[in-house]
C-alpha cells in the first residue's frame, strides 16, 4: 500500500516537469560537437566528382575496421604535369635514373611483389627511396602516393633521404644499453660531428642505431658496413672511427 503511494508521488512530481524524451524524427536534437554521425563521401560541387582520392589511409587507421575502400583507377590522384616537369629537373640534379627501377617494376608485373617488397628492392637500387622513384611506382602500379608514403614512413628500414657511403649501426638493445651503448653513440656523434640518424655533409658516414642485433653477449656492439665490433668502449670507438676516417678520407661535420 505504502509502496504504491510512493510510486504515485514520484509520478505526480515529474508530471509538470519538462520532458527529457524527444519525438524523433519529428523533433531533432542538436547533436554535441564531437558526435560521430555517419560517413559520407563529399562530392565536389565544382565538377560533381567525389573529393575522395582513395588513398585508403582512413581504412588502415580506423580502429574498428568499419571502412572499406573499393575504388576504380578513375579516382586516382593524378600527378600534375607541372609537378612532373619539376621532378624531371630534380631528377637530373639528384642523379636518380628511373631506368634502374625497371627491373623492380618488371618483378612486380611478373610475380605481384607486395608494396613492401617493391620498396625494399627500390631501396637496394638507390640506397634510399627517391621521391621520383616513389612517384614512378605509384604511376605504374596504381598504388596511391599517400599509401606508399604511409608504408615507407611506417617501417624503420626505409629511408627517404640519401645515406652516406659507410653506415655505422650502433646496437641499442637492452644488453647494449646496460653496457653503455649511449656513450658509444655520444662518442661517435662527437667524432663525426653529426647527430644520430644523420649523414656527414661529405656523404661519407651515416650514424644510425638499431634495436637489437642479437649479439647480446658481446655488448655493446657496432657494425660498420660488413665489419662488426663487439665489446667496445667509447675510447675504442673513437679510435676505430678515426682510423676509418683516415682510411677513406672523411670529414667531420
Amino acid at each position: 500500500m505504502l509502496g504504491m503511494f510512493k510510486a504515485m508521488r514520484t509520478t505526480l512530481k515529474h508530471l509538470p516537469m519538462k520532458k527529457i524524451t524527444v519525438q524523433y524524427p519529428e523533433q531533432r536534437e542538436r547533436l554535441p560537437e564531437r558526435s560521430r554521425g555517419l560517413f559520407r563521401v563529399v562530392i565536389d560541387p565544382a565538377d560533381g566528382e567525389p573529393r575522395c582520392r582513395a588513398c585508403t589511409l582512413c581504412e588502415s587507421n580506423c580502429p574498428v575496421q568499419v571502412i572499406r575502400v573499393n575504388y576504380t583507377s578513375k579516382y586516382r590522384l593524378p600527378v600534375p604535369n607541372a609537378a612532373r616537369i619539376g621532378e624531371a629537373r630534380l631528377a637530373a640534379q639528384s642523379g636518380v635514373d628511373l631506368k634502374d627501377l625497371q627491373p623492380v617494376l618488371d618483378e612486380y608485373y611478373e610475380h605481384g611483389t607486395s608494396l613492401i617488397g617493391m620498396l625494399q628492392d627500390a631501396q637496394d637500387v638507390y640506397g634510399y627511396l627517391p621521391r621520383l622513384a616513389i612517384q614512378e611506382i605509384s604511376l605504374q602500379t596504381g598504388i596511391s602516393l599517400s599509401q606508399i608514403y604511409g608504408v615507407s614512413t611506417f617501417y624503420n628500414q626505409f629511408r627517404l633521404s640519401p645515406v652516406g657511403e659507410h653506415i655505422i649501426d650502433v646496437c641499442h638493445g637492452t644488453a647494449c644499453h646496460v653496457a653503455g651503448a649511449v656513450q658509444i653513440t655520444e662518442a661517435l656523434e662527437e667524432e663525426l660531428g653529426v647527430a644520430e640518424g644523420k649523414t656527414t655533409s661529405d656523404m661519407k658516414f651515416t650514424l644510425s642505431s638499431v634495436a637489437c642485433m642479437g649479439a647480446c653477449s658481446q655488448a655493446p656492439v657496432m657494425r660498420i658496413g660488413d665489419k662488426t665490433f663487439g665489446g667496445i668502449t667509447p675510447d675504442k670507438t673513437r679510435k676505430i672511427i678515426r682510423d676509418l676516417m683516415d682510411e677513406v678520407g672523411g670529414q667531420k661535420g
Partner: peptide, 25 residues
C-alpha cells in the same frame, strides 16, 4: 618475407597486414 623493421609486426594481425604489403597495424 623480410620484415622492414617494425616491432609491432610481432603482433599477429599486424604481421598479416605487413605480409599483405600494408602498414603493420
Amino acid at each position: 618475407k623480410l620484415g622492414a623493421g617494425a616491432f609491432v609486426c610481432g603482433e599477429e594481425t599486424a604481421l598479416i597486414a605487413s605480409i599483405e604489403g600494408k602498414r603493420g597495424m
